[in-house]
Design a protein around this nucleic acid. Structure first.
Lengths: 106, 106
DNA sequence: AGATGTACTTAGCAACACTAAGGAGCAGGA
DNA sequence: TCCTGCTCCTTAGTGTTGCTAAGTACATCT
C-alpha cells in the first residue's frame, strides 16, 4: 500500500509500542514483524528512529545483550509509563476511528 | 479528546474531503460541522489551511459567492481528481485500520 | 578475502496539523 | 453613531513525525 506515510503519523508509535507490549523484542525483529504483517513500506530506519524517540520519552526499558548471531541487540520492554501511553493511544485511536465511521456514513 | 493531533495527520484531509463530498460547503461551515461531530480541537485555522492545500492540489472546485450574512464565502465542491483521491484515501484508511485490529488482537 | 545477513546510529528532509495575528463584512443594541 | 459580536477568510511561522541516506560493526559461509 503506497502513500501511507501521512496516515501512519502518530499511529506508528502506537504500533511499535503495541508489539513490544506483547513481549520483549528489538528493532530488527520489529521491522521483520511489521513487514510480515503487510506494512511493507515501514523499513528499518523508520523503526529505529521511532524506538529512539520512545526511549527518550521514557516509555521503554532497555537492555543491551549480545546475540547468538550478529552484533549486540537492544532489547526493549514496556515500562509503566509505556503502558499508560499505550492505553491512551488506543483510546485515541478508537475515538478517531469511530468518528471516521460516523462521518463516512453520514 | 486531547493529543489527537498526530493521529489526525493524513486523516484530516480525508475528513474534510469526505464532508465536501456530501455537498457543496465552505470553511466556516466545515469547522462547525466537525466540532458538532465531536472533533472539538479542530479549529478554524486548521480547517482553512487544509482547504487551501487541497485547493492547490487541484482536488476542489471553488466558487466565491456572497453570503446573506457576513462576508463572501468560498464554496467548495469535489472534482474528479478529488473523488479519486477520496476513494484512495478510504482504501488506505481501511488498510491501516485492518492492520491495527490485527496487531491489537495478536 | 569477500559477500551476505544481522543489528544499530546519526543528520537532515518534507509533509502536515496547529498557532498567531490580522482583516473585512454585516447585524443588533447601547 | 459607535461598538460589540458573529461570520468568513488569509498568511507566516512552529513543532512533530515518518522517512531517507550514509555509515558502523559483528558473525557466518563460500
Amino acid at each position: 500500500m503506497e502513500g501511507l506515510t501521512e496516515l501512519l503519523k502518530g499511529a506508528l508509535e502506537g504500533i511499535v509500542l503495541q508489539h513490544i507490549a506483547q513481549g520483549e523484542t528489538y528493532g530488527y525483529e520489529i521491522t521483520k514483524y511489521l513487514q510480515d504483517l503487510g506494512l511493507e513500506d515501514i523499513v528499518e530506519g523508520t523503526v529505529y528512529t521511532v524506538l529512539l524517540r520512545l526511549e527518550k520519552q521514557g516509555l521503554l526499558d532497555v537492555e543491551r545483550r549480545k546475540s547468538n548471531l550478529g552484533p549486540q541487540r537492544k532489547f526493549y520492554t514496556l515500562n509503566a509509563a509505556g503502558e499508560d501511553y499505550l492505553t491512551n493511544f488506543w483510546a485515541k485511536w478508537d475515538f478517531l476511528s469511530g468518528k471516521m465511521t460516523q462521518l463516512r456514513k453520514a
